[in-house]
Computed example of a mutant assay.
Amino acid sequence: MPFKTNPREVARLKRKKRIRKNITGTGERPRLSIFRSDKHIYAQIVDDVQGITLVATSTLSSEYKEGEMAAGKVGAAKRVGELIARKALEKGIAKVVFDRNGFIYHGRVQALADAAREAGLDF
């Protein structure tokens, strides 16, 4: 883990470590991991047993940019949630484990999760 001096980032990484002790993605129930930066949000579905990413999307992906641009960061997170759910269902993935990556379940993280659930993912 890189050396961090920002206390908020240090707290997030502590939460992340605590969460990841108990959450792993398997072949039948992979892990939906998210990351949010100041400008963008990323989501990927990972099989931790094989160590591969099955599906990934973000606000930087071409699928996101092809559609209508969302209003604000929460709107962008909702759109990414819909995209990741659609791509997962196309690959036959219906059940996942949600990994909020140490981020508090609020705002953009919650919007992405709710949109993915509404689009058909089960978690």
Rank of each mutant, 00 (worst) to 15 (best):
residue 1 M to G: 15
residue 1 M to T: 15
residue 2 P to K: 15
residue 2 P to E: 15
residue 3 F to R: 11
residue 5 T to K: 14
residue 5 T to Q: 13
residue 7 P to W: 05
residue 8 R to Y: 09
residue 9 E to G: 08
residue 11 A to E: 13
residue 13 L to G: 08
residue 13 L to D: 14
residue 13 L to H: 12
residue 14 K to Q: 15
residue 15 R to S: 04
residue 16 K to N: 11
residue 16 K to F: 12
residue 17 K to P: 03
residue 18 R to H: 13
residue 18 R to Q: 15
residue 19 I to Q: 13
residue 19 I to G: 04
residue 20 R to N: 03
residue 20 R to E: 01
residue 20 R to K: 07
residue 21 K to L: 15
residue 21 K to R: 14
residue 22 N to Y: 13
residue 23 I to N: 02
residue 24 T to F: 10
residue 24 T to C: 10
residue 25 G to N: 08
residue 27 G to P: 11
residue 27 G to Q: 13
residue 27 G to W: 07
residue 27 G to V: 11
residue 28 E to N: 15
residue 29 R to Q: 12
residue 29 R to A: 10
residue 30 P to H: 10
residue 30 P to S: 11
residue 30 P to T: 12
residue 31 R to M: 06
residue 33 S to R: 10
residue 33 S to K: 07
residue 34 I to Q: 05
residue 34 I to P: 06
residue 36 R to S: 04
residue 37 S to N: 13
residue 39 K to G: 03
residue 40 H to P: 14
residue 40 H to K: 09
residue 40 H to W: 07
residue 41 I to D: 05
residue 41 I to G: 02
residue 41 I to P: 04
residue 42 Y to Q: 15
residue 43 A to G: 07
residue 43 A to R: 01
residue 45 I to H: 03
residue 46 V to L: 08
residue 47 D to Y: 05
residue 49 V to Y: 01
residue 49 V to A: 12
residue 50 Q to I: 07
residue 51 G to E: 06
residue 53 T to P: 04
residue 55 V to I: 14
residue 56 A to H: 06
residue 56 A to R: 09
residue 57 T to M: 04
residue 57 T to K: 06
residue 57 T to V: 14
residue 58 S to Y: 13
residue 58 S to H: 11
residue 61 S to C: 08
residue 62 S to I: 09
residue 65 K to H: 07
residue 66 E to T: 02
residue 66 E to K: 09
residue 66 E to P: 01
residue 66 E to D: 05
residue 67 G to D: 00
residue 67 G to A: 00
residue 67 G to W: 00
residue 67 G to S: 00
residue 69 M to F: 03
residue 71 A to W: 00
residue 72 G to I: 02
residue 72 G to S: 05
residue 72 G to F: 04
residue 73 K to G: 09
residue 74 V to L: 12
residue 74 V to A: 12
residue 74 V to P: 11
residue 75 G to K: 01
residue 75 G to N: 00
residue 76 A to K: 03
residue 77 A to W: 06
residue 78 K to F: 01
residue 78 K to A: 11
residue 81 G to I: 03
residue 82 E to Y: 03
residue 82 E to M: 10
residue 82 E to A: 08
residue 84 I to H: 00
residue 84 I to D: 00
residue 85 A to E: 08
residue 86 R to D: 12
residue 87 K to D: 11
residue 88 A to N: 01
residue 89 L to S: 10
residue 89 L to C: 09
residue 91 K to S: 15
residue 91 K to V: 14
residue 92 G to E: 11
residue 92 G to R: 08
residue 92 G to Y: 08
residue 93 I to D: 04
residue 93 I to Q: 01
residue 94 A to N: 14
residue 94 A to C: 09
residue 94 A to L: 10
residue 96 V to A: 10
residue 97 V to K: 07
residue 98 F to M: 02
residue 99 D to M: 05
residue 100 R to I: 03
residue 100 R to Y: 08
residue 102 G to Q: 04
residue 104 I to P: 01
residue 104 I to S: 12
residue 104 I to R: 07
residue 104 I to E: 09
residue 105 Y to N: 04
residue 105 Y to K: 02
residue 105 Y to V: 06
residue 105 Y to W: 02
residue 106 H to W: 07
residue 106 H to D: 01
residue 108 R to T: 10
residue 109 V to W: 04
residue 110 Q to P: 00
residue 111 A to Y: 03
residue 112 L to H: 09
residue 112 L to R: 12
residue 113 A to T: 13
residue 113 A to C: 07
residue 114 D to V: 11
residue 118 E to D: 11
residue 118 E to A: 15
residue 120 G to Y: 12
residue 120 G to A: 10
residue 122 D to F: 03
residue 122 D to C: 07
residue 123 F to Y: 13
